[in-house]
Measured scan of single mutants.
Amino acid sequence: TTVHLNGVTYTFPNPEEARKFVEKLAKTLNLKVEVHNGTYHIE
């Protein structure tokens, strides 16, 4: 599972880890999250 954040790409072997990371980040920084083909894009 891949996460794109400010031009940096993070790869998680575990989709659940990626989801938790994204949710925590989005909540902390009040960001918008979009998912395209299983890839998270955070703005």
Rank of each mutant, 00 (worst) to 15 (best):
P15Q: 10
V8F: 12
N30H: 10
E17M: 14
P15I: 08
N37I: 02
T28E: 13
G7N: 08
P13K: 12
E16D: 11
K24T: 12
N6Q: 07
T39P: 02
K24E: 13
T28Y: 14
L5F: 15
I42F: 08
Y10D: 00
V22G: 01
I42T: 03
V35Y: 14
A18V: 06
H36M: 09
E23Q: 08
F12D: 00
A18D: 00
T2R: 14
P15W: 09
T11W: 10
V35P: 01
F12P: 00
I42N: 02
T9C: 15
E17R: 11
L5Q: 02
I42C: 12
T9Y: 11
L31Y: 06
N6D: 09
K20Q: 10
I42D: 02
H36S: 06
F21Y: 05
K32C: 14
K32G: 02
A18I: 03
T39F: 06
L31S: 03
G38H: 05
Y40E: 02
F12A: 00
V3H: 01
K27T: 08
A26G: 07
V8I: 11
L5Y: 15
Y10R: 04
A26K: 11
T28H: 13
E34W: 14
V22Y: 03
R19P: 00
A18R: 02
L5N: 02
Y40Q: 03
T28F: 14
E43Y: 15
V22Q: 01
E16S: 09
P15L: 09
A18Q: 01
T39E: 15
K32D: 02
V3W: 02
V8W: 13
E34Q: 09
T28M: 12
E17T: 13
A26M: 14
H4G: 02
K24L: 13
T1H: 07
V3D: 00
I42W: 03
V33D: 01
T2K: 14
E43K: 11
H41Q: 05
F12E: 00
L29C: 15
E16T: 10
L31F: 07
T2E: 12
V33W: 13
Y10K: 03
H41N: 05
L5R: 02
L25Q: 01
E34K: 09
V35M: 12
E16N: 09
E34C: 15
V8E: 07
L25D: 00
T2Y: 13
L31K: 02
T39G: 10
H4P: 01
K24C: 15
T28R: 14
R19T: 05
N30V: 07
K20Y: 08
H4C: 15
K20E: 09
V3M: 04
K27D: 06
G7S: 07
Y10N: 01
E34N: 08
E17W: 12
K20G: 06
Y10S: 01
V3I: 05
T1E: 04
R19A: 07
V3T: 01
F12H: 00
L5P: 00
K27F: 12
K20D: 07
E23P: 00
T39K: 06
T11R: 13
K24P: 02
R19L: 10
E16Q: 10
N37D: 11
K24M: 14
G7E: 05
V8N: 08
E16W: 11
T11Q: 11
A26Y: 04
L25M: 06
H41K: 04
P13C: 15
H36L: 12
G38K: 02
E17D: 11
V22N: 00
L29D: 05
K24R: 13
L29A: 07
N6P: 06
E17A: 13
T2D: 11
H4K: 12
T39R: 07
V35K: 04
K20F: 08
N30L: 07
F21H: 01
T9K: 13
H36I: 15
G7L: 05
E43I: 15
G7D: 06
V33T: 01
E43F: 15
H36P: 01
F12R: 00
E43P: 02
V35W: 12
P13M: 11
F21L: 03
Y10T: 02
H4A: 07
N6S: 08
V33S: 01
T9L: 13
L5K: 02
N14I: 05
H36A: 05
A26P: 02
E43Q: 12
T11I: 12
N6V: 06
E43M: 14
V3R: 00
H41P: 02
G38Y: 03
T2N: 12
V35Q: 04
E16F: 11
Y10V: 05
T11G: 05
E23R: 08
V3S: 00
G7P: 01
V8L: 10
T11K: 11
Y40K: 02
V33I: 14
H4E: 07
V3P: 00
L5I: 12
E43N: 10
K20T: 09
T28P: 02
E34R: 12
F21W: 13
K32Q: 05
P13N: 11
E23V: 10
P13H: 09
L5G: 02
H4I: 15
G38E: 03
F21A: 02
N6G: 08
K27E: 12
A18P: 00
T2F: 13
Y40I: 13
E43S: 14
T28W: 14
G7F: 07
F12W: 03
K27H: 09
T39C: 15
V3E: 00
E23T: 08
H41L: 09
A26Q: 12
G38A: 03
N30Y: 06
N30Q: 09
G7Y: 06
T9G: 05
H36R: 14
L31M: 08
F12G: 00
H41W: 15
V22K: 01
N14L: 05
T1D: 05
V8G: 04
H36F: 09
T9P: 11
H4S: 08
T11C: 15
F21T: 01
N37R: 03
R19H: 06
K20H: 08
L29M: 11
H4D: 05
T28Q: 11
N6W: 14
L5A: 04
A26T: 09
N30D: 07
V35E: 05
V8S: 08
N6Y: 12
V8R: 13
L5M: 12
T1C: 15
Y40A: 03
K32T: 07
